[in-house]
Write a protein that binds this DNA or RNA. Structure first.
Lengths: 248, 248
DNA sequence: TTGCACAAGCTAGCATGTCAGTTCAACATG
DNA sequence: CATGTTGAACTGACATGCTAGCTTGTGCAA
């Protein structure tokens, strides 16, 4: 009986192919593994779990009230994102921040976001332009108020709006991964008070280029902006070597 | 090729604590999950498992002689790479190729590899130059012999040599993921016989720029080359719409 | 006191068992 | 004959027990 059933089904299946969705969170909707994944990731990004710290699976299982399976799956995903390193038969640890990794992430981010900005400039709609300009007005207000955290949030939203304008799922996922690795230092760093106005000016150049529909200008502006940001990271790292994991 | 020359350099620069390398294949050396992971991936890339085909876990377990755990772990990894889509309580399927994904992958690849080429041009050593030029000589021979498969292998090696010259682990991993998604179409595509000489010429321009140590030239040459490749993909997709999954 | 060998404890990887949700087809019913 | 219902079977998500390998602490010998 089982034989016949499997035979007919296996061959017949898959005409539907319902969704073209490749979304990463498709399965994360209500899964325990997805939950603990976000939990650990947030803890790492927030700094609650410091770089190099061991991840106690058993404690996590007990705390979250689930078995080791979802926890293991989540850690495997994080290992794939390079946010944790798992050493077989030894333990799982929060990945350390290597300065060279930060530099590399910024290089890749500059490359991708620069080209995305150019692409967005090609097919920008009036609604995006309006959203960017509104965001910029808020940024100006944040600078005037000296609100670093607010500016940071607006910064993230600004870049998110641009990257979201084109539906590049893979690129978005990649930038997300990059951002996740950068976030840990970024939360400490933010934008130095003296550089806030400068940052907004760079954003304005990017927005102007996109609104003007000039791809090359947009790419250049975005790359310049991210190069400055990378320089900020570097400077910060030079001043705070203890926070980073320099290769011995 | 990178062997003797890179030996001293690579070891000197990056022997950070034992876990320095988090490469996905580090743990895969002898792990069952890693084995089945490579197995399925290869099957997908080679086309043995066609896009949209269901993946029968049970059959895989039996065929490979292991329990469901390694198979599940491997499929989870592949799902993270977007090579398979897993629908909870329904089944796991080989991801379809979406034309927009191919375009997007090429855009990202062009962005990253362009900047990497520029970076490599900055710090290129004589050993890399020699390797590239030797590779180019082989490419010329492959063209002369009309060996498409050989040229393809040399193409991969050429790009690999450039990207491997800088130790950008994250970028390499990303490009690997991109390449994996592109590979399926690429194996069908390869380089059209009429374009082989053109491809080599583009490679020669890239190599010349790197050897000359001119970052901007290198970036431009690499971007031009990858733009051409993207155009090839597009043309192929236009001629063979049935092979692709056009998103609704 | 110092160096080494051994064993105990911990870890991730793996095997197996169970549960819940979905799909499809046979069946009863209008 | 069309249609709504129900049941079986398949699937992935999850729980739990076991195994192999690394780390480390301890005791013994030089």
């Amino acid at each position: 009986m089982s034989g016949a059933a499997t035979g007919s089904r296996a061959l017949a299946t898959h005409p539907p192919e319902r969704g073209g969705a490749v979304a990463p969170d498709t399965r994360a909707r209500a899964s325990k593994a997805g939950h603990v994944y976000r939990e650990i990731k947030e803890a790492i990004l927030a700094g609650t779990l410091q770089p190099g710290a061991p991840i106690d699976k058993a404690a996590l299982c007990e705390k979250l009230g689930m078995s080791r399976f979802p926890v293991t799956a989540a850690i495997n995903r994080l290992a794939f994102e390079r946010l944790v390193t798992v050493e077989p038969q030894h333990g799982s640890f929060v990945a350390r921040i290597a300065l060279r990794d930060v530099r590399e992430c910024m290089l890749v981010r500059r490359a991708i976001e620069g080209d995305i900005a150019a692409e967005v400039a090609r097919r920008a709609g009036p609604d995006l332009a309006e959203a960017l300009l509104r965001n910029l007005r808020y940024q100006g207000a944040a600078v005037a108020a000296g609100d670093r955290a607010g500016l940071y949030a607006l910064d993230v939203a600004f870049h998110g709006a641009i990257c979201g304008a084109v539906a590049f799922h893979h690129a978005e996922a990649m930038l997300d991964g990059l951002r996740a690795r950068l976030e840990r230092t970024r939360r400490i760093l933010m934008t130095p008070p003296g550089r806030m106005a400068e940052t907004v000016a760079e954003h304005e150049a990017v927005a102007a280029a996109i609104v003007a529909g000039d791809p090359d200008w947009a790419r250049t502006a975005m790359r310049r902006h991210l190069a400055r940001t990378a320089a900020l990271f570097d400077g910060f790292a030079a001043e705070n070597p203890a926070l980073f994991f320099t290769v011995p």
